[in-house]
Nucleic acid binder design. Sequence first.
DNA 1: TTAGGGTTAG
Length: 789
Amino acid sequence: MVEHHVPVAEETYICLIRLCEWKRVVPEGVRVYAVSSNSITLFSIRLGNALLSMLVRFGKLLDAWFVFGKMEERDLFSWNVMVGGYAKAGFFDEALNLYHRMLWVGIKPDIYTFPCVLRTCGGVPDLDRGREVHAHVIRFGFESDVDVNNALITMYAKSGDVYSGRRVFDVMTRRDRISWNAMISGCFENWEFLEGLELFYMMRNCCIDPDLMTLTSVISASELVGNEKLGKQIHGYVIKSEFVVEVSVINSLIQMYCSVGRLVDAEKLFDRMGFKDVVSWTSLISGYEKNDLPVKSVEAYTRMQLEGVMPDEVAIATVLSACACLGLLDTGIQIHEFANRTGHITYPLVGNNLIEMYSKCGCMDKALKVFRQIPDKNVISWTMIISGLRLNNRSFEALTLFRQMRSSPKPNLVTLVAALSACARVGALMCGKEIHAHALRSGLRFERFLPNALMDMYARYGRMQSACSLFNTHNDKDVTSWNIVLTGHARQGQGVLAIELFQRMIDASVNPDEITFVSILCACGRSGMVSEGLDYFNSMEEKYSITPNLKHYACLVDLLGRAGRLEEAHEFIEKMPLEPDAPVWGALLNACRIHQQVKLGEIAARAVLEKDSQSVGYYVLLSNLYANSGQWDEVARVRKLMRERGLTADPGCSWVEVKGGVHAFLSGDETHPQIKEINAILDGFYERMETVGFEKHTYSFVDIIEASKAEIFCGHSERLAIAFGLINTVPGMPIRVTKNLYMCGNCHNTVKFISKIVRREITVRDTERFHQFKDGICSCGDEGYWGKK
DNA sequence: TTAGGGTTAG
């Protein structure tokens, strides 16, 4: 529309700019700007200001900044536009700098300047700066201006100092509706709900009618305080008011009803709406999801699409949560594809919930792919992927990612809890301790989840003292806290301590739950306290009104079985009021393995495999039962059965922590950079073992069977980890290893031997217990490895 | 002769 070679008068440009601004045609406006800046070297105030205001309104801040720099002169208006533009775009530092420069060059701010500047102070928020600007307001004589005062109120509220805002509000001689709205929402933002509501009533007494903003803000507050009655009252008010037709107000009401669990009221409102926008639909979708109705949530999403309402990023993210909850992978994938097509995938919110959905559906690789593709990963993205990996038993990778994250973005409480859970899983004590220290340093409040996660980490690692001291100093313990320590004692075989703790729990009037009894029964079983265990089992229903579930029955079978009372255990299963499941029979099978009762073991195995033919662990137990009694044909038969059913044993994996890093070793790992040294050091041990009368041991699978070793599924990865630890730490340092399978008897012996010759403490935590080797002795007393001798 | 201040939802 503008030819390059024809000189155009400045006035024409200004007219064109005004027109573009008025018509809101961005591309044309930018073209006019481009052409005008080509033909004119310096902008006059009139043209410059016109350009500035248009560019800022179109969000073209960089271009505006360019024009600002090329103006022959600048007036108050030019500065105001720039400060306001930066403030609106969230570039608070730049806005504040400009404001100071403006004062520096001697331009006096006016009533337009202060609201812009105060917005930046509230946006950071920076209370000190805000107070400084407040002082400027007084110095330049604008303290009685309504608009400036309104901005002051907001600045104080956003900076967390709602009382200073209130003082400004109280001395105002004239207040408009904006003053009231600012003050009321300021109170709500600072959780001063009562004061906010009082102001709302005062406002009406002063004959100022609430508007749309007032109402939406008050409705959301009644949702936040969970005050159903208040919500109803406001609903009544809305019905009588002119706002009954406003979509946004009804949306807020729907939200409010959902949040107090009154879905029927929410649905009623929703159904009566003449026009429903995407927010109305999402309010409902999310309401269902939050009230544990994920199926209805997904249905509502489908209905929304059928009615031709286009989902936006929030709708997509919300329905993804529902899919995650239901494990609806197919639907989740469809939504993922949709988000890809529509470009919504770039929203962190969508990406984060996709990670959650894939994690919960067990597709961790897809989750990782999504994670890598999120352009602006926030704390939640990181937390989601860390917990996802942890959930899918990839704790090692979870910790690697956690390390990568560290400073930006700053991990929050949830991140730390997820990372601690991963530490607990792989026995990364140092990493866990670091997180503990980090939490103390960063002044995070030790709320429910964090102390529990810490205790769990220490307890799983066998550090019962640390766990207990946290427990004792932790003021608001919940049942989980008690259960964590109780389970820790059980794992350590500290039956007496477990019983003492249980008593303390009862004395403290904490109601035990189902998990409590699993732990206490387990503790009794591990400590051979059969009669105590039976007593607890019998007291569950009578004293604590907890009906024993299958887990409790399995514990009891284990308790009887470990004590050698196999027939009794068998009878107990036969008389169970519930249909016994695989773990119940599995407990008996394990007991038969320990006590080498092949006949009964076969009965148990048959029953187990009937219930669950896919879990490798049971084949391992059966195979070990045969191996323990030297029936190698049977061992081979079990292995063949596994092959036929397409099952392979989980690869053994051990972790060791060296210099703050966690190193993982798969059994038979030949790719590790230090594998030569590792093998050399192990061979050295084997030779010495042989000379003192230990049997020679080699690695290959066939060899192991032929060497008549019982546990063929061990993988012996712990040896690699221990050797690596020995090579890479200073003499005398304890070596701490965690393993994903049971440690076999052979490894147990080998580690005992190693601990003796290297004179180091070596701990191995396997899936069953915690072994502390020192001077050739293990804290577990070898039980369970060699059965009756 | 333009600019600034309050709000809300999923």
